[in-house]
Amino acid sequence: MNHSSSRISRIRNVFSATEPYLYLVPSILIFSIFLFWPFFKTIYLSFYKTNKLGQAKLFVGIGNYKELFQSSAFINSLYVTLVFVIIVVSISMLLGLIGAILCNKTFPGIRFFSTAYALPMAIASSSAAMIFRIMLHPSIGIVNKLLHLNINWLADPRYALVLVAILTGWLNSGIDFLYFSAGLASIDETIYERASVDGAGPVRQFVHLTLPGLSPILFYTIVVNIIQAFQSFGQVKILTQGGPGDATNLIVYSIYRDAFFNYRFGSAAAESVILFVIIMCLTLLMF
């Protein structure tokens, strides 16, 4: 009796030690199939040249990487992506922040305005891009009609990247608006009252109270925004296909083109790994 009860308790101990892991099994299984396996396969493929079926055929070691760093197109793609990310992050954060501050006060119609500012979140990037394409069309687009200009916006390398970035920034601003609204709501109202009693104007209140209060959420938003901007794809695919020239050939689009158009999975995989390393470094740097 004593013996069996100790065995039961031992089983119970073993069970309680393993129990948490059992709960993890389903998710680990799913993650392994859909995330880890493809991830390691990507690294594996990046060391090979692939045939027309996308199968690894010829081991080239770091040959794909070497080719990439010697190719001016890829360097250009990195540079374009960097410029793009900077524009997108600035625009989306600024729009989100302004929207959130404006909607922080209660006034009639507040619901309408907060919905309007959060709306870009709900729009698929591809459909927004389709609408933009029509708006920017040189002969039938409303932009040229309103401005009385005759500019082929998306075919001109001076404007194409900036326009795609503005669209992306606007699309991303919806989620930023949400983050910032949540952040603002968590700042204690009473400190503003005390500050205004002490004679602080709205600008000082913003700089010394709002911004510090937002700083944790601000940090998180920057990280998420950068990652999101790096991975923009649909807009480029629909608006410019990487053109004119290579002016909007963002890295993810360049991966897509290499993999599914040129059927060179090896170099596409190498590009994916490089993108992964870049984003990882940036994120670690910011932590």
């Binding site: 493809p38 994916s272 992964f276």
Partner: peptide, 13 residues
């Protein structure tokens, strides 16, 4: 986000 990005580009087959 990263993994899903890699997932979508890596194992096309």
């Amino acid at each position: 986000m990263l993994f899903s990005a890699c997932g979508s580009t890596s194992a096309p087959n």
